Simulated scan of single mutants.
Amino acid sequence: MVVPLYSLNTLRLGYSIVSCTFASTAKRFLVGDLKPSHISLQNHILPRSITSKISADQHNFTVAYLINSCGLSPEGAILSSKWLELQSSPGADSVLALLSKYGLSETQISKVVRSRPTILVADPEKILSPKLEFFSSVVVSREDLARILCFNPHLLLRSLENQIIPTYNFLRSLISEENVVSVLKRSSWIFRENRRKNVVPNIELLRELGMPQSCIALLVAHNTEVLIHKHEKFAAAVEEVKAMGFDMKKSTFVLALRALCGESSKSIWKRSREIYKRSWGWSENDVVSAFRKNPQCMTMSEKKIMEFGEENYSKMFSC
Rank of each mutant, 00 (worst) to 15 (best):
Y6P: 01
E240K: 13
V140H: 10
G103P: 04
G14E: 01
L132N: 14
R48G: 09
P153L: 09
K293N: 03
L98D: 13
M298A: 08
P117K: 07
A217T: 13
V200I: 15
K242S: 12
K111A: 11
E311M: 03
E204Y: 05
L86N: 11
L8V: 09
T118F: 04
F253M: 07
E310R: 11
P295F: 05
L149E: 07
T118W: 05
L128P: 09
S136D: 05
M1A: 01
D286G: 06
L5E: 10
G245V: 13
I127Q: 11
S37D: 15
K249G: 01
R292D: 01
S159M: 15
E204F: 03
E143K: 10
L46F: 15
R172Q: 09
V121D: 02
K249N: 03
E232P: 01
G71S: 01
N294V: 03
T21F: 10
V112T: 08
G76I: 00
K242C: 06
N312S: 09
L46S: 14
T118C: 04
S279M: 00
I203N: 07
V254C: 05
N60K: 06
N223F: 13
K242G: 01
W282R: 05
F234M: 04
V138M: 11
C215S: 09
E143S: 13
I164Y: 12
A256G: 03
F151D: 07
I50G: 02
S19P: 00
V18M: 04
P36R: 02
K82H: 12
N194Y: 10
R28F: 05
N294M: 04
Y276N: 04
A256F: 01
E178V: 14
N169Y: 14
F308N: 02
R28N: 13
S182Y: 15
G14N: 01
F234K: 06
E161D: 15
E193P: 05
A259P: 08
N198P: 05
R158H: 14
V254A: 02
N294A: 06
K304A: 05
V226R: 07
L104D: 05
E307M: 10
